[in-house]
Design a protein around this nucleic acid. Sequence first.
DNA 1: TAGTGGTCTAGACCACAAA
DNA 2: TTGTGGTCTAGACCACTAT
Lengths: 233, 233
Amino acid sequence: MKSQEFAQLLQTNINNGLYSETGKLPTEDMLMKQYGVTRYCVRGAVNLLVSLGEVYPVQGSGMFVRESKREGCLSLNNTTGLTAGFDPDTVVTRVLALDLEEADAALAKRMKCPFGTPIYALKRLRIVDGEPYAVEYSYYAKSIVHILNREIAEGSLYRYIREDLALNIGFADKVVYAEKLNADDAALLNLSEGDPTLIAEDDAYLSNGQMFNASKMVYHYQKVKFFNLANLK
Amino acid sequence: MKSQEFAQLLQTNINNGLYSETGKLPTEDMLMKQYGVTRYCVRGAVNLLVSLGEVYPVQGSGMFVRESKREGCLSLNNTTGLTAGFDPDTVVTRVLALDLEEADAALAKRMKCPFGTPIYALKRLRIVDGEPYAVEYSYYAKSIVHILNREIAEGSLYRYIREDLALNIGFADKVVYAEKLNADDAALLNLSEGDPTLIAEDDAYLSNGQMFNASKMVYHYQKVKFFNLANLK
DNA sequence: TAGTGGTCTAGACCACAAA
DNA sequence: TTGTGGTCTAGACCACTAT
């Protein structure tokens, strides 16, 4: 069994509360025996969970579960966009605009591509439980996401890219800040111009380092919080 | 040489632009030869840098530098509070209040400690380049941070805890959101009541899992952005 | 002192990318 | 096909915690 699979197994155990009585995982030796895996595998899996902020190891003492899932918060570490973390049934997406453009200077810089590169430009309103949740402005490189139509845009684009296009999503740079809402976005979010809004800008890359997506999410400030489990060592 | 030291060395090289020509690190074999370290050490170091978002590996191709340091943004992954990432000379801290309290029900819950536990309560105004930057409300467990006075509070508390008290800071849970400023904080930040503000709440733990600090940072929304290098795999 | 996690060695073979 | 990173084995010893 690979470290990654084993990490998934441990994660499932944690989520099922298997270790909640003591708050700690079995020792490395126990895990090796229980699951018939090597120490290499155990340590690889634990390292993954540590870097995800799920557990923390204390030398000489054990490996402890870090129970601090903030309910209803969006994770800053694992997700881009929005669908992950919500029941898909509760998310409705209204496509406000979808165009195929050729990158001008600004967009070329934003997408780190040559001038004139074809780029899909998309504007969506994300609705959760019937309430407007975020306005999303996003761009996708046509060279990677060859086909993008309204039907696809009404679903989870990340699911589409990962599963239907079979591309490996790797990492993202995020910038988060607060701003005053403009009139347009305020109207879409049922808020007033000048109200606060929480903004997240993402640059997303495939695991081979190709940038495929830039987006700006304008969140309803009363409905969205981000959480992050940081390692300060 | 330990993996961690080697990661530090590689990080320094990256920061010095040693790899900026090709954008990639030497191969594992090269690093082993150049620095006389084992593959174990190389891979441990690279894994660290990957989890920090500094590099990304592409199987069969190489290890690439992820150049996206956002100038002037605060990192969400590595830091709590503020001093890290600024030239200490440019940061001035005004202590607005410092009291030793016994935890009431709310504070006991916030600090995950028993009712009545002694807690330092601190309110500070952080000033960067002469401009108000953030209002900070923070609590420190006296059982861990035994002594806290105005003189100490005017400096970097994390430096104090790490270096003077020789404690190992481990990790933090962060929650980030936007809000309307209240009149008090607005006055301190030279903004208006009802303006947006970016809030970060941190629960910080020693590496043995003891919680020692809870804080709420009320940031000037025009001066602060957060960035985060996320791994989506 | 015993238990537990942290580091390391010296190999081997697999999976993927580029030529 | 070759080079590169990914995974793994089977050990050994070190560093820290709890008793």
